Simulated assay, not measured.
Amino acid sequence: MKQTKYLMNPGRMSRQDNTLKFTPVDENGVEGTPRFLPVEQVSDLYVFGNLDANSALYNFLGQEGIAVHFFNYYEHYTGSFMPREYLLAGKMQVEQTKHYMAAKKRMVVAQAFVEGAACNILRVLKYHHSRDNAKDLGQAIATIEGLLANVPATTDVPMLMGIEGNIRQTYYDCFDAIVGATFTMDGRSKRPPQNELNALISFGNMLCYTACLGTIYHTQLNPTISFLHEPGARRYSLALDLAEVFKPILVDRLIFRMINKRQLQPSDFRVEVGGCVMKEAARKRFVQGFDELLKETIKHRSLGRSVSYRHLVKLECYKLQKHLLGMETYKPFKALW
């Protein structure tokens, strides 16, 4: 079974027969013990340290359909090496473009993404509100429910994005109450994040975005044609759309879980001129937690069987494909737990 592999340390990667050879290299240039990754076991690579590789390796990765996602020192996603789109289909490309170009069709999909995101945000807030009424999240829940009720009446994407922005702002204002006194949100800041909680959110969101991008690649959808976010040069905007639905479930829940279990402490971060960043050990723990969460399974109410969260993202892509082809109306994933 293919899996995502995370390269946290700097090193050199090359091809050795049908195996990927990764040799870690320390800051003094001393090579460590090589690791061998059978190519048939790798779905994609997340690179957090400096990677030394040549075009022969990338040709090999492209032939095997393995994407490589890069993050910089400050945990910002910087780009991806994406193999040739081997599953793109002409009919799907045409229909996806038509739905973007037709304002009414685009709004149906865009509204569904915001609806899914808002419902999952509410699920997170209601969970923490029920666990501890002293956190008093009732007003925020009522505000978001009111904003969600206005989504069907939106007539264009800027109006819809305004509502989505207000939902997110109300939601982020609740973070201080949820995490307690250990961390402080102090408003949402990014590029660069100014404190520990903002650094966690930004890093987690980038992991969710790249997970969605990797999943889209294995479908017939074109990742550059989106509906909620405006398509732009040099970005895979459909992954941004899809990530909106899953960030509350995959990222925010993980953040709250790790903080409440004291798996992350203020000492795991450092503030630099470029913003607040996680130390290497903390970053490894968070990435491990995210990967384990993607592998967790739930009982799917429609399929009647257990599926992983990673597979839920793929099912979301399939639902969107069916909508674009006129087979069924897209209904976003909404957590019930």
Rank of each mutant, 00 (worst) to 15 (best):
M161H: 02
G165Y: 10
V157E: 01
C119Y: 11
I141T: 01
L160V: 02
Q169C: 12
C174N: 07
A118Q: 05
Y127G: 08
F175Y: 14
L147F: 06
V124F: 14
R131G: 07
R168V: 13
T170D: 01
F175M: 14
I144Y: 02
E115V: 09
I178F: 10
N150F: 10
T154Q: 15
P152Y: 06
F175G: 04
P152H: 06
G138T: 01
M159G: 07
P158N: 05
K126C: 01
I121V: 13
N120P: 00
A134F: 05
L147H: 03
V124D: 14
A153E: 15
T154C: 15
V114W: 00
I178W: 10
V157L: 02
N166R: 12
C119P: 01
R123T: 03
A118L: 02
Q169N: 13
I144L: 00
A149V: 04
H128R: 11
N133K: 15
H128I: 00
S130T: 08
R131P: 01
R168C: 09
M161R: 08
A149H: 15
D156C: 15
Y171H: 04
G138Q: 04
M159A: 14
D176Y: 07
P152A: 08
I141R: 06
G146L: 02
M159S: 14
Y172C: 06
A177S: 10
G162F: 03
T154M: 15
F175K: 07
A140K: 09
N166A: 11
Y171E: 06
A149R: 14
E115D: 07
P158Q: 07
A140V: 07
Y127A: 09
A140C: 09
T155L: 15
H129P: 03
G146W: 03
D156R: 14
A149P: 10
A134D: 10
T143L: 04
Y171S: 06
N133D: 01
Q169M: 12
S130G: 00
D156G: 12
Y171F: 11
D173M: 10
L137S: 06
K126S: 03
K135Y: 04
A177H: 07
A117L: 08
V151M: 09
D136I: 00
D136H: 12
S130V: 03
Q169V: 12
K135N: 04
